[in-house]
Amino acid sequence: MWLAKIVVTYKKGILDPEAKTIQHALVTLGYQNIEGLETGKYFEVRLKSDLKRNQAEKLIYEICDRVLSNPVIQKYSVELVEAE
């Protein structure tokens, strides 16, 4: 089975108010060494093992571009691994 680990985050320059709030809370708690913080969404997508790696990759990128991320405001990273 293929396992795709996908993280979707905001692009640079897009205001991420949730991240700002969390960062502010951490600094308020005394964690003074925090320089930045981003939030995002994590997805695990399992694919049938009879797909070749390049087929699995193609499918995942298509899903990411079309559904899981909004390319206007978000970017994503993918890690594709073979799993049990």
Partner: peptide, 16 residues
């Protein structure tokens, strides 16, 4: 916006 009929995006309010 998500359907691409209008440009841009709507994101969470700046004050959350």
């Amino acid at each position: 916006m998500e359907a691409g009929l209008l440009p841009g995006a709507l994101i969470p309010n700046d004050h959350m």
